[in-house]
Design a protein around this nucleic acid. Sequence first.
DNA 1: TCAACCTGTTTGGGTAGCCAAACGAATGAG
DNA 2: CTCATTCGTTTGGCTACCCAAACAGGTTGA
Lengths: 186, 186
Amino acid sequence: MIDWREFDQNPVSHSAAHHLTSIQQLLEEQGYARVSDVARKLGITRGSVSVSLKGLRQRGLVIEDQHKHLGLSEEGHRIARGIHTKRVLFQAFLRESLGLPDELAELDACKVEHLVSDVTAEALALFLERRPADDEARAELAEQVKVLEKSIKEGRVETFPCKEIEDFSSELMRKNELENNTHDDE
Amino acid sequence: MIDWREFDQNPVSHSAAHHLTSIQQLLEEQGYARVSDVARKLGITRGSVSVSLKGLRQRGLVIEDQHKHLGLSEEGHRIARGIHTKRVLFQAFLRESLGLPDELAELDACKVEHLVSDVTAEALALFLERRPADDEARAELAEQVKVLEKSIKEGRVETFPCKEIEDFSSELMRKNELENNTHDDE
DNA sequence: TCAACCTGTTTGGGTAGCCAAACGAATGAG
DNA sequence: CTCATTCGTTTGGCTACCCAAACAGGTTGA
């Protein structure tokens, strides 16, 4: 069993990820970023942002000039860029390969962006480069997804996973175990 | 901007997800599950498990018989099965479509399993069914991934994202925005 | 000049997790 | 029977977030 607590052992927390990317975005959008700008963008109070940024300043990710204008250190900038890149990659995958509607793709990408490893993100980029959006397949998937969404919303299928998917995943698991055993034999 | 705090607005937390799936797994493996079994499996203290399970019991997800043996309610069982299914689906995708090594696939799948929406999981299942592992492509990707991993470990590339990937993601973003604009025009 | 407003900070309160330590109850060995 | 172990629970302490509220400093318009 893998250590499941690696979950919150990431370079930056979900919260910190959004603080950093907000600053970066504000700098691009309006040229500066202050505590209240970040608070407004994230929808939390100035007090919360003030406290959070104190930590990020101590960790050397965020800097502040004489006029209380925020900036990112080189490290902070790198981290923000990394998270943003992961978000874009995942969103693209969810939209274009899985045919998910835009909003859901954005939401789910946002949830996982700071959790996936760098290697996984790189692999995803390679995958997307190699298999660029196949519009036909995508449209077909999008159609099926739309039907699914509707069923769920109407309460016709309130139970995930449905039988088909569970069977499919059981099969995947079986194949996985098989493969591991052959590897172990080497 | 999407509400980034949906992050911890999921039916179950990362912690709860593991408590539930542990119980389910223990029931399968040894026919029963007690507080200490769960604690051992999760690598945390009995006290922590005791407290966590109190909450899950109040929420009606976990039940307990006269002999302090734990079980899952119908709802609890459904949730545990759902999370497990998502884990399997993501792990399969990371391994077979992205060519990631087994351990990393398991780790990353474990991090996101409880966060992704049901619809996303269903879409992923459809995707995997439609594009079963292409062994050739997978081997090729695995090779590239191996090289990447090595570079990162040796510190030759300590910076994610590298230039290529960032350029690629910029392009994805550009395409995304273009598409949104065309949709807006409709 | 002075009140109104906006800023950033601090403080006390709340939730969710984790730990270590202490406890009572049950169980098992001798 | 007794002592040691195991089990589940409770408690106090910790971190990481969030909020609301109070406060201090700066700007600005009348």
